[in-house]
Design a protein around this nucleic acid. Sequence first.
DNA 1: CCAGGCCAATAACATAGGTTATTTGGCGCT
DNA 2: AGCGCCAAATAACCTATGTTATTGGCCTGG
Lengths: 231, 231
Amino acid sequence: MLSAPATIATERAYVRRLKHHAPLQDEDIVALEGRLGRVEIHAPGKDLELAKTQPLFLISGWACLAHSLRDGRRQIIAFLLAGDGVGFDLLTRPQPHIELLALTPLKVRYAQPGSLALNERLGRAFAGAAAEQQTRLVGHLVRLGRQTAYERVAHLLLELHGRLAEIGEARGEGFHLPVKQEVLADALGLSLVHVNRTLQQMRRDGLIDLRGSQVSLLDRPGLELAGDQRA
Amino acid sequence: MLSAPATIATERAYVRRLKHHAPLQDEDIVALEGRLGRVEIHAPGKDLELAKTQPLFLISGWACLAHSLRDGRRQIIAFLLAGDGVGFDLLTRPQPHIELLALTPLKVRYAQPGSLALNERLGRAFAGAAAEQQTRLVGHLVRLGRQTAYERVAHLLLELHGRLAEIGEARGEGFHLPVKQEVLADALGLSLVHVNRTLQQMRRDGLIDLRGSQVSLLDRPGLELAGDQRA
DNA sequence: CCAGGCCAATAACATAGGTTATTTGGCGCT
DNA sequence: AGCGCCAAATAACCTATGTTATTGGCCTGG
């Protein structure tokens, strides 16, 4: 059982996420919660060992899925935020050589192994959530394949802001971006230095404000013009 | 009903594919076939309008999923070969702005809309197939984000050869690559010219042989050294 | 058998982005 | 208050890849 209201709100980001994709009944939630287990907190930098662990939901904090090459190059496959699930269904099913990395202090809740699609509605909810992740994956692929550094950064900032807004972690046009530029670089397929250059340029262009790890999207139309990838 | 044995073999590439992921019974196949419908042939260059169409299996030929940006830049998300399904489950579920493009004369077989996971076994088979596509998608992402042109080409050639071998369309270390270099470029996030340069270089390095659209992997260890992305 | 197209192959040049190194600016710790 | 550390910010230089253009082979249609 959960205690304080504030706790409830955050503990259940994943419920809101799932409800977003299918109209879940109270009984579904109960059934789902029945399959959820212990909560753990991990320190930033911790590798959660995707391959060996049970599926889990992110309660709070940022994580990422990353693939490292022999020589140390690293590609971040996806960012994971509160409410995101890992290890269910398809997306984020264990894959060779992919690690699940805590980027901030991370609170996760583990689930029983095996599908949590306990009924039709939950099935649709999980499928919807997985499809959403998949869409983001494709967007990321397009970024890496065919967008310039400037476009990639703009596109990623918009994506993150949108996702954070959905889970109530944005403040208007601003949000907290708790990652080093090195991490952005590994996500965007760029060098650390060039990420910095690009951020400076966007700052000079008046598109964003950046102080510490606080970002503000000052000129959303401008950012969308720069980053959007519609046909 | 199918007529000639040769036809059976190719018509059912998707059955072999699914069996690869779960031990299907004859009754499963029958049930599945019952939900499959008309066969169509499309000319190269044809956009099959992913969003408007039913799910389908590729019977023969090559296709791709592609995303085009406003200014004409294009990113190929995935290559699709005989036996691959499109529009089922997650991967290749209709997504905004993504087109399904025939790269060669293409024979496809449409399915009833809705899930074809008619039972437990079929469900696992489809999930497995989707997971496989997903793994490839992630591999592609790493290619685009963190590999050099040379590495990307090597990695893609190995992937294609592997997939073609699985469906009996490779000849030893060689295979037919029925796409223009422009298409490779759009898949690899490179320019046409640089793809050509890179192929020439690999040729000079004795890694591949290239005559017309026939490719041979002359030095597999060399290619793997160049292209593999294991940690 | 020639003309036109298409695509691979090159060449020459331009640039986005990578690399290495140095400086600056917080910020916690003693 | 001063030290040390880490990450952001810059600078200078380098290179992989992009761009634009030209050429040559090959096939196809007339």
